[in-house]
């Protein structure tokens, strides 16, 4: 029997992105679980304890950012590496994150990886491979 596949949780509000990313993952030997918003995302993360999370931070409103905050402030979920996807450049996003930190007064760690959307499938796989080692 082949060894247990890595479980990756994909959170994205766009159907096309979910299909694309899960296809990239499945065809490279991972098990993809998809959800379409931050709320479901957190619930699923708690339930299945994934090895990695691919999260679109730019979901409508602050859905993505809120989910990221929840993940990184939860003692159990905190350790799961997050690949963050976003339509904006990394610097802009981190600036945003910084402003959020000021509001909350407790530091949120940076995501383990950051990719601009739409991610190139090779880039995505490379990053995931490194994080899962």
């Amino acid at each position: 029997m082949e060894k247990e596949k890595h479980k990756i949780l994909v959170v994205d509000d766009e159907l096309d992105m979910r299909v694309y990313i899960s296809t990239v993952l499945e065809t490279s030997g991972y098990r993809a679980v998809v959800t379409k918003n931050g709320k479901e995302g957190v619930e699923t993360a708690v339930k299945i304890n994934p090895d990695l999370i691919v999260l679109d931070v730019m979901m409508p409103g602050e859905g993505g950012v809120l989910m990221y905050r929840t993940l990184k402030t939860d003692p159990k979920l905190k350790k799961i590496p997050v690949v963050m996807l976003s339509a904006v450049k990394k610097e802009i996003f981190f600036h945003y994150l910084k402003m959020l930190n000021v509001k909350m007064e407790n530091n949120i760690s940076e995501p383990e990886a950051y990719l601009e959307k739409p991610p190139d499938h090779e880039d995505l796989l490379k990053v995931i491979k490194i994080l899962l080692k």
Binding site: M17, V19, Y20, T23, V24, K117
Partner: peptide, 29 residues
């Protein structure tokens, strides 16, 4: 353009693996 690229990827995988579901999804995208 991003979604289109994604669609083409899924379609490609469908052709490569002869996977009907990928073909369908890719084509829809």
């Amino acid at each position: 353009a991003g979604s289109l690229k994604g669609g083409v990827f899924v379609l490609d995988k469908g052709l490569e693996l002869d996977n009907k579901q990928y073909l369908r999804e890719g084509w829809r995208m």
